[in-house]
Design a protein around this nucleic acid. Structure first.
Lengths: 151, 151
DNA sequence: TTTCATGTAACTTTTATTGTTACATTATTA
DNA sequence: TAATAATGTAACAATAAAAGTTACATGAAA
């Protein structure tokens, strides 16, 4: 795994958990699916656990499970749980703000990004984990071309 | 300069050029204002030049100028010129797409981000360089609190 | 008590960005 | 034409952020 983000790792793991609800999946197994390291999986799923989306059990037959139906988990929750911004940061470092222009650019961009953030969150809320899972195993009636969540 | 992005550097430089329209400003002078290196300034402004927003002249009394009135330059143009995405990339590396779930996650997120990108671009288009420049020298009638471009 | 799993700290590797040096190119001016 | 002052750009170094790895403690079940 090179350029992936924790967000897409999280989504990928959640889909796997959703598709195998009967038994817990270990970090090692997930790591193979996600082509990464068990510790990385624990780090990512650990933050999802703090958000109440998954649970982990230790010891024999331990591993990770979904705590809620996939239809009740939306991407906004996942994205919020990961604490990542979908938007880049444009602020300069603290030493720079002596310049009034820098402050203004930061302020304008900050306002813009805050607006945009809210906008994106509202859109993410409309995509559920189940939406993704359904696309991952296309219904024969709806072949898997790119007719996604638009609208 | 540590965490700044090329986008905010570009905006900062453009405001400076706007505020001093009478003579060209050199990379070195701008570098001092932006607290960075002349070469970095050239790199950033070089891409803005390709987009037709600024011009550079070499030799004696050379430097950088704005090519258009600040009211005709909007943030969408700047952002497009810089070739940067405001959104993070969530795609995994090519080796990962053997997994159908990864492909689906990538596809869904890709669609979402493409939508979001268009949305943000439309909003950026409504902010002009002049808007920023005016805030940087607040009109006494409109003190400089955070009444920015919302709406 | 052995085994298997997570929890987590510490460290290394990798990648992207930024900063820097050096020098060629071009334009102006004395 | 020579000196000067600027950009253009390649090549490299430094930095920071992210991911990968190792090692081991902790907890639960057989």
């Amino acid at each position: 795994m090179k350029r992936s983000s924790r967000l897409s790792l999280a989504l990928h793991a959640l889909v796997h958990l959703h598709k195998q609800p009967d038994e817990a999946i270990t970090s090692s197994t997930l790591a193979q699916c996600l082509m990464t390291n068990p510790v990385v999986v624990r780090r990512v799923l650990g933050t999802l656990r703090e958000a109440g989306l998954v649970a982990s059990t230790r010891g024999h037959d331990g591993g990770w499970r979904l705590l809620r139906p996939a239809g009740e988990i939306n991407l906004r929750q996942v994205y919020a749980a990961m604490g990542e911004s979908l938007l880049i940061r444009t602020e300069s470092d603290p030493g720079d703000i002596a310049c009034g222009i820098v402050r203004t650019v930061n302020a304008v961009m900050g306002d813009f990004l805050a607006d945009a953030e809210a906008l994106l969150a509202a859109r993410l809320e409309r995509v559920s984990l189940d939406d993704i899972a359904r696309e991952a195993t296309p219904n024969p009636l709806h072949p898997h071309h790119g007719n996604h969540h638009h609208g």
